[in-house]
Simulated scan of single mutants.
Amino acid sequence: MQIKKKFLGGIFCSLSALLMAVEPQAAGDGQPAPQLRIVTSFYPVYIATLNVAKDIPGVQVVNLTKPFTGCLHDYQLVPDDLKTLANADVFIINGAGMESFLEKAVREIPQLKTIDAGKNIALIKDKNGANPHVWLSVTLAMKQVQNITAGLIERDPAHASLYQHNCDDYVHKLEVLRSRMKAELKQLKSREIVTFHEAFPYFAQEFDFKIVAVVERDPGSEPSAREMVETVQLIKKHKARAIFIEPQYPDKSAHAIAHETGASVCLLDPAVTGPMTENAYLQIMEKNLAALVKTLKD
């Protein structure tokens, strides 16, 4: 009889462990499990989604990648990522090729539902393909917010009015930001800038800047000696006053070029890392505005 009890107890424990592994977990601190679990691919998509889904009961937003990951260039999924995606009701991506791992994710988790924040956005293309850094245009950031909203309303129609209210509120804040940036930046006579990598074409297009050179086409890839010489020549030719580096990456190459040209080295943040708070994108872009005005004003 004692053996039978132990045997049944062992089966119960095994079943309990199995159920815990497959059932959604409670949110913690006595909170019920979310009714809609949204997973975002990386930082700018997370911030946009956080604004659309804020204060909506039963909706949880989590980010797939670590806050310090930055752009998803060559990002490789790890087992914990697949576990997170397997528990997602919807996965929101930047699109435009940023999530190079998406094909693998869908293959591993065929039931994964996605919302493409970059849907129907006209992309800037060059010999390397489409540029995915669309959120650095404030106008296109608004479009991404609207795409996210439409996708969540389709997925969760019971909360349609709340999603739409949040969307309208955040888009208004973005409109105010865009107007202020355009008003201040149009006063700058110097329009030629040098950027650290290919993150800022949409920003330059929106605010009428000309990117005359790029230090590193891909972050972490040191330019060759020939590329360094060409960049120095371009900076001197266009009389660019500053090289804008990014806080997420080493700046050795930029400082070497600045030494040869006399250009200043300043920060321009691509908004791929930062505080995990609703106003983070607005604050980062305000800092970018201040940096440009300080560096390029006469």
Rank of each mutant, 00 (worst) to 15 (best):
E184D: 15
Y170D: 00
A242I: 06
E198T: 13
E175P: 02
F207E: 02
H165Y: 09
A256W: 01
R191C: 03
C167Y: 03
I245R: 05
I243A: 01
K189I: 10
D208H: 14
S190A: 15
E206W: 11
A256L: 11
E216A: 09
I243H: 07
L188E: 11
S224M: 11
S161Q: 14
T195F: 05
K237I: 01
D208V: 11
H172Y: 09
L177M: 11
K210P: 00
H165G: 04
F244T: 02
A199W: 01
T195S: 07
V232Q: 03
A225W: 10
K173D: 12
D218C: 12
H255C: 10
R191W: 07
A240K: 02
D168F: 07
F209A: 01
Q164M: 05
K189C: 10
Y202V: 06
R191S: 08
K186M: 14
K173T: 07
H197W: 05
E216Y: 02
F200G: 02
F200W: 10
K236Q: 13
P247E: 10
V212Q: 05
L162D: 09
K173R: 13
H197V: 07
H238S: 03
L188S: 12
E230M: 12
M228R: 11
I235N: 04
A199H: 03
C167H: 04
V212S: 01
L174P: 03
V215Q: 01
K237P: 06
E175G: 09
V229E: 10
H197K: 07
V215A: 03
C167R: 14
H172W: 07
D169R: 14
E192N: 15
S161W: 09
V171R: 05
A199T: 06
E198A: 12
K210D: 09
L188K: 12
M228T: 14
E227G: 03
Y163D: 00
E222W: 02
Y249C: 08
E216K: 04
Q187D: 15
Y202I: 08
A258V: 11
Y249R: 13
M181E: 04
Q205V: 01
H172I: 03
L188I: 14
V214Q: 07
A240M: 03
L188P: 03
E184R: 15
A183P: 02
L185N: 05
R178D: 15
A254P: 10
L234K: 15
E198V: 12
E216D: 00
R217E: 11
K237A: 13
I243W: 03
K182S: 10
V194C: 02
L174W: 06
R178T: 08
A213K: 08
A204L: 09
K173L: 09
Y163G: 00
D169A: 14
K182E: 12
L177H: 00
E175M: 12
Q164H: 12
R191D: 07
H238V: 00
V215K: 02
L162R: 14
D169W: 08
A213V: 00
E184K: 15
K189D: 15
K186D: 15
N166P: 04
R226T: 15
L177Q: 04
E227T: 11
A242E: 02
P201Q: 00
E206T: 08
I193L: 11
Q233T: 11
D168E: 14
K186T: 15
T195W: 05
P201F: 01
F196Y: 13
L185G: 05
S161A: 15
V215M: 04
D251G: 12
R180H: 13
S253L: 01
